[in-house]
Design a protein around this nucleic acid. Structure first.
Lengths: 168, 168
DNA sequence: AATAAGTTTCACAAATTATTGAAAGTTAGA
DNA sequence: TCTAACTTTCAATAATTTGTGAAACTTATT
């Protein structure tokens, strides 16, 4: 397999994976294109290599920058903006976990807390089932949150070292 | 807040969360409806409570059963099928992790392995960048796989006990 | 200030995904 | 075996999400 084929397949697969995780295909594809490029690319490079419009490229690059997965790079003497992706996969994973925690777990915890105030006969079977379930999810979410925070703050070496050993 | 309101809000929120994770809204809503119901429900109950068609209900219930999140329950003397959800959140999380690993991580690893066979000048900058990135993702995916396997096999108590303490 | 290079926005179009509902298929019991 | 209760399928349709591209906007340079 030559480089171009391999890149194309990687971009394709990464795009599919992304879309299964609620990230749009183009965003994932731009990310993977930047991941496998040795040098920073311009908006035009991206447009050309992925056959995607300028507007779409711009929006998704902006989103990637928002997530911290991509950086603007300024090349001295050039007017154009260049973009490059964080290549350290551990950092990438960490950034994604952080973003998703912030955008999804945190709001869910907020809702769960409001739901605790459900009133009614505590002996009623339905009320009991509901309160039980919500309480359990809240506990789980709380632990998940703590665990994520720790992982996010952890150094890569720590993860690859003691953490993995623990799971052998 | 009364029970009905609380249930409705829970179902709504769970549905949104699901859709951010590539699970369709109705499937997530049916799951949450069953999660907070004291007793098993029939297809008709679900249709009525979520205002969803028979076909849609059937398809999504089947998918939930497929994932192992919902069970058919047969009530003696009744012809209808009843459905109930696994209420233990740790088990729910475990089942979901397992399904997603199987459906997404495993295929990605397969692709990554194929991509290792990229040929070309190993001193070429682009080839190097590509091989580097793919190799790193492969390593990461391998470790993630191991970790997930261990978590999936682990007992709840083990998780809530030593695992969490480690992260304090 | 004028110009040109570069970036962003947004109404509309295209593509994708979910839902409906009626018809076909099953199954338990008479 | 027949039939009525119940479940499943799937082609058509609706809803949602994503992408386009030209116009508006911004900024650097002369």
């Amino acid at each position: 397999m030559n480089l171009e084929e391999a890149k194309a397949q990687f971009i394709q697969s990464w795009g599919i994976l992304g879309s299964q995780w609620g990230i749009n295909r183009t965003m994932a594809q731009i990310h993977s294109l930047l991941l496998v490029s040795a040098k920073p690319l311009t908006t035009e490079d991206i447009m050309e290599q992925l056959s995607v419009s300028r507007g779409n490229t711009n929006m998704n690059v902006r989103e990637l920058i928002d997530w911290g997965l991509v950086d603007k790079v300024i090349i001295p003497g050039e007017r154009k903006e260049y973009f490059s992706a964080e290549k350290d996969i551990w950092k990438v994973a960490t950034l994604i976990m952080y973003q998703r925690k912030k955008r999804e777990l945190d709001p869910m915890v907020k809702v769960l807390n409001q739901l605790s105030t459900v009133d009614g006969d505590k002996k009623n079977e339905d009320v009991k089932a509901f309160v039980d379930t919500v309480t359990n999810i809240k506990k789980f979410a709380g632990q998940a949150e703590k665990t994520l925070d720790t992982i996010i703050k952890a150094e890569e070496n720590w993860f690859w070292g003691s953490f993995i050993k623990l799971f052998k």
